[in-house]
Design a protein around this nucleic acid. Structure first.
Length: 267
DNA sequence: ATTGCTTCCTGAGCGC
DNA sequence: TGCGCTCAGGAAGCAA
């Protein structure tokens, strides 16, 4: 569900709520939700809350990293009332002051992984550059995709190339670049690469300022809804601002939205 | 090595 | 109302 701006919004909310709180228990309500990759005696206090791609990473004082991926429908809800449960609670991180962080996930694809601070996860190690970092520039994108033939949309969705983009933002970025999503990455010019990098950073920054996008079930940590959906140009739209009907196609199993007028195929 | 197809699971929305 | 079908901010795990 959430992409980079939504995850960042959640991380920002968590920073305000759970820093320095001591974890006393992690409860799994549904199997295959919480994975212990390290022996835990005590969890410790939350030292920091961070993000890498779409992963949320909590660091504790006991050399423990809690890595959370929300996938499609995961939510984190900070709850002050210990009695409270949400409709699809899969796990809870319970703090010493009786507040808790509820991990709610309708489709149950999300996961919480506990690892020692000096370890990592394979998926984390393989992630590509952070799109908002200076290291993400057109040269990186060009070198990283050299020899590939995939459509540019698939490249933008590939977490091993760019960490954090998903279906909505990939579509919006290409709309802003006026690039057809089917275009093979190998056919893009240097200028196209520059445009993609520029628009990626701009779209993500704007979305973060608006607390992300809400389509149906995304909520930030305090159950606030994002507002960026009001700024989307193609995703979920029937018509482009130019009046043309938006095309919907399948790419790598996902629906791609684009405007055939504003994003024509290259001849 | 890279690409594409299927799968995990639940619920909403649609047409009949 | 209700049934059955399609679809959903993701990505691992295969097969080709």
């Amino acid at each position: 569900m959430p992409e980079l701006p939504e995850v960042q919004t959640i991380v920002n909310g968590l920073k305000e709520n759970i820093i320095n709180k001591e974890i006393i228990e992690i409860i799994e309500y549904r199997d295959e939700t919480v994975f212990f990759h390290t022996d835990i005696e005590t969890y410790g206090k939350i030292l920091s809350v961070g993000r890498r791609g779409k992963y949320i990473i909590l660091q504790t004082t006991q050399q423990l990293k809690i890595v959370i991926h929300l996938r499609m429908t995961g939510k984190l809800i900070f709850e002050a009332n210990p009695e409270m449960k949400s409709s699809h609670t899969r796990a809870e991180i319970v703090f010493a002051d009786e507040t808790k962080l509820i991990f709610d996930d309708i489709r149950t694809f999300g996961k919480i992984e506990l690892i020692s601070s000096d370890e990592s996860l394979d998926a984390l190690d393989k992630l590509g550059k952070e799109p908002l970092s200076d290291a993400f520039d057109y040269q990186y994108l060009q070198i990283k995709t050299k020899g590939r033939k995939s459509p540019v949309k698939n490249i933008l969705m590939n977490q091993e190339i760019i960490a954090g983009l998903g279906n909505i933002y990939a579509a919006e970025i290409l709309f802003r670049c006026k690039i057809n999503p089917k275009t093979p990455i190998s056919q893009l010019s240097k200028n196209d690469f520059k445009k993609i990098v520029k628009q990626t950073k701009e779209v993500l920054q704007e979305a973060i300022l608006h607390n992300g996008t809400t389509i149906s079930d995304y909520r930030s940590v305090e159950d606030k809804t994002g507002e960026f959906q009001n700024f989307l140009n193609v995703y979920g739209k029937d018509y482009c601002n130019c009046g043309t009907k938006i095309e919907k196609i399948k790419q790598a199993g996902r629906t791609t939205f684009y405007c055939p007028e504003c994003q024509p195929e290259k001849l």
